[in-house]
């Protein structure tokens, strides 16, 4: 991998945390995006020369913030900050900033940023588009491609969504436990929507929208890293991994969908399955079941069956019965009926 692609990777990975902190600082998504863009441009100049910083997210936050303040000072004709080459050695400032931005802060910042995208006034498609643009940093072109709409239409959709959330009631104070749990639920649902948007693609759209599945898994992992003891987050991450593991087996060469029981299981991604199984195993130890864990447990029973006829259908029936109680819906009842019919 070239140095440049390492830098790109580091920026992509740092983006959610850096954007989250900048949004808290500026209390404005557009200002934060501008500051982040600015910081990225400076990173592309400074990092190849000075080497990558120890904490890319802290570097981007600090430089983004300074650049924005600098711009404000310039326009108000006050004294400007020292020029960039004097600022290039950020080592001390960076360490200090990193310590200030302890992980507890990061956690709520990232959760808030995702939560802002889940504004209840926004239709689901706009929530997803906004999260992909703001949190994941996908370009409007990439998002438009995933939704199979024109770039102009997507640009407009995102602008409209931003205007809607810019209304000012975005919650910037630190959340209490109840609020945190609420945000958590909304954000988990949104991540699942991002995944489904990719997973439900068929035909030619599979390739373009498949990226959404990867992005959803990345967001789920990010949240799980920030909240490592949350069983439903383990369940959601496991569910996404176990479903995505089948992607290479889901479609025939002519694009026709292949049913689960007819899929060539050797095409399933072993690494994703193993990680999914490890996560659901860990979640179950908590003895605090929830809908994502139950769905992941169902996917796990499918993943564990080496052949379709080895599937533990009575186990799946029981899990659907649990899900029917937690989250009653006609789809769940239907799925359960299918499982019951298969029980020998």
């Amino acid at each position: 991998m070239t140095e440049l692609s390492w830098i790109e990777g580091a920026i992509t990975a740092a983006r959610p945390q850096a954007m989250a902190a900048l949004v808290r600082y500026f209390r404005d998504v557009d200002a934060a995006e501008e500051a982040f863009q600015d910081a990225c441009l400076r990173a592309l100049k400074a990092w190849p020369k000075n080497g990558p910083p120890r904490d890319p997210a802290a570097w981007l936050i600090l430089v983004g913030r300074n650049a924005a303040i600098d711009a404000i000072r310039k326009t108000s004709r006050n004294t400007a900050l020292p020029p960039e080459h004097l600022l290039s050695d950020l080592e001390d400032a960076e360490v200090e900033a990193a310590e200030r931005l302890d992980s507890a802060h990061y956690r709520d910042d990232v959760l808030r940023l995702l939560f802002i995208c889940c504004h209840p006034d926004l239709p689901a498609t706009q929530q997803i588009a906004l999260a992909l643009r703001i949190v994941s940093g996908l370009s409007v072109r990439e998002i438009a491609r995933a939704f199979v709409v024109s770039e102009a239409a997507m640009e407009q959709r995102i602008t409209r969504a931003k205007a809607r959330i810019g209304g000012g009631d975005a919650p910037f104070e630190a959340p209490g436990p109840v609020e945190r749990a609420e945000r958590f639920g909304a954000v988990a649902a949104m991540i699942y929507l991002v995944f489904n948007e990719g997973y439900s693609a068929s035909g030619k759209a599979v390739e373009a929208r498949g990226a959404l599945c990867d992005e959803a898994i990345r967001l789920a992992r990010l949240l799980l890293r920030l909240f490592p003891a949350e069983p439903e987050m383990m369940g959601l991450t496991a569910l996404l991994l176990l479903q995505h593991a089948r992607s290479d087996a889901r479609f025939a060469d002519d694009g026709a969908a292949i049913l689960l029981e007819d899929q060539d299981r050797s095409l399933w991604n072993r690494r994703m399955i193993d990680e999914g199984l490890a996560l659901i195993d860990k979640a179950m130890l908590k003895r605090a079941p929830g809908p994502y864990q139950v769905q992941a447990a169902i996917a796990a029973l499918h993943a564990r069956a080496t052949r379709a006829q080895d599937t533990d259908w009575s186990g799946i029936d029981q899990l659907y019965a649990t899900l029917e109680i937690m989250q009653p819906s006609p789809v769940v009842t239907l799925n359960r009926a299918v499982a019951v019919a298969k029980v020998p």
């Binding site: 991998m1 692609s5 390492w6 990777g9 990975a13 990867d214 990345r218 992992r221 890293r225």
Partner: peptide, 13 residues
Amino acid sequence: NQEDVVCAWSKEE
């Protein structure tokens, strides 16, 4: 290594 960086690699990378 930084896990979030490694996790952000594409399948090809």
